[in-house]
Design a protein around this nucleic acid. Structure first.
Lengths: 138, 138
DNA sequence: CTAATTGCAAACAGTTTGCAGGCGT
DNA sequence: ACGCCTGCAAACTGTTTGCAATTAG
């Protein structure tokens, strides 16, 4: 009893995460996975995400626009949220030394770091003559 | 036209934030502010929070259990989220050096750092004989 | 064949809005 | 008195659950 079955819905959802550049929300997962399994329903997305979280394959992370999910292998990475395009990217970097910020007596499990700003695509526009210009005022 | 009026509801809500130890959610604000203004309704909490955000007095921050609000003066502080009591505390610490984690070409505006773990109250229980013991296994 | 899984729709929870009455200025 | 503000309830949006049909093993 209780064995998980392989279905095309689950395969499609895992594939979506495998090729994602950053954490995804339920509706993003649905839109992307429906390209493979058009009949997919949102309830299944939530249920599969819950199962994958329980299995430890996915984890929730917070972004300025709400909860998103990504594979556990990528989850400890710091993230960069672009206020212009509203997308989140994983970035490299070691955040282990942040443990020292915790007050005495507090047990540290992990970190959830989002750097907020403007990504390179949104910050810079290539002008026709080949130079670049910053499109932001502040 | 358009002038904001002073009401006891707004005063109560601001007071709640003034004495808060960390960012608060709508229902926490409601519970706390009702100690001063029992008739307060949740809709008013949302409306006042929106007004205070527009005024720049409050800002939203993300925690593992969703959006929370706190005064702008405290918002750059790193936070500690306790998985046991589900509360978030502000902690001291300078996160400015985290700017170097951002990829080249990315413009950094601010940071949103949550350290996740177990707070001192939840990690330790005072036993009857005055000693303390850790109640967590992992 | 059996039990897990799926899609739909209803149920829920959290947030926003319309409105009539109340209150600050 | 005027118009912003409040509380209630209805409307919305996003997430979860019940159920009958479907499908993997």
């Amino acid at each position: 009893m209780c064995a998980h079955k392989r279905t095309k819905q689950k395969a499609a959802i895992r594939q979506v995460f495998a090729s994602a550049l950053g954490p995804l929300g339920p509706s993003e997962i649905l839109d992307e996975a429906r390209k493979t399994v058009p009949s997919l329903g949102i309830a299944t997305v939530y249920r599969v995400v819950k199962e994958l979280k329980k299995d430890g394959w996915l984890q929730a992370v917070q972004t300025p626009v709400g909860s998103r999910f990504q594979t556990t292998s990528k989850v400890q990475s710091p993230r960069f949220f672009c206020r212009t395009c509203q997308k989140t990217f994983n970035v490299d970097g070691d955040v282990g030394k942040l443990a020292q910020l915790a007050p005495k007596g507090f047990i540290v499990k992990c970190f959830d770091l989002t750097i907020v700003g403007t990504c390179s695509s949104c910050a810079v526009t290539i002008t026709p003559d080949g130079t670049t210009k910053n499109v932001l005022s502040s």
